[in-house]
Amino acid sequence: MNIFRLSGDVCHLVAIIILFLKIWRSKSCAGISGKSQLLFALVFTTRYLDLFTAFISIYNTVMKVVFLVLAYATVSLIYFRFRKSYDSESDSFRVEFLLVPVAGLSFLENYSFTPLEILWTFSIYLESVAILPQLFMITKTGEAESITTHYLFFLGLYRTLYLANWVWRYHEEGFFDQIAVVSGVVQTIFYCDFFYLYFTRVLRGSGKMTLP
């Protein structure tokens, strides 16, 4: 464990909590892509199947359980409790265009052709595109509430810190996970455009982020 990975995991947890509390307290999921949250729940489900078979550390187990619980709780808020405020019109990204290529690629490019390994690979590839429905929804509505942009900021920060974590691990341990790194770089690139808007608009105090 290193400071980059630990702070990355904390940012990830903060992002998920920000989103959950925003929906819970405003009793609305307006502007939130339910599809992205479904994809994240699928990412955690397919990645954490080793929760009961491989014990790594208390931290690892606790964080996996927390991520799974919060992911499913957020999905249930969007699709059940506050479903009347769910804007399915704007959340129109065709997720099958993500799931099919990601599933195909996880069968082609993986470290070993075993169910657990293919599902883990699927979760890595899926995570790199899971935010796209949310980013697409923002471009479609042309705006995002500032709290939603803070959620995306912490999510992007978590990914950026993971890149630093991989540089550190390669330098210190000679550890290099090609699938995770390539997928992580692609994922982080998707946040670049958002980061630009976030720093030039939201942090300038304009409250909500409106796209040009």
Binding site: I56, N60, K64, Y111, T114, D177
Partner: peptide, 10 residues
Amino acid sequence: EDDTLPKDEL
């Protein structure tokens, strides 16, 4: 071949 890596990252 099985060259899986340790899955210690979240």
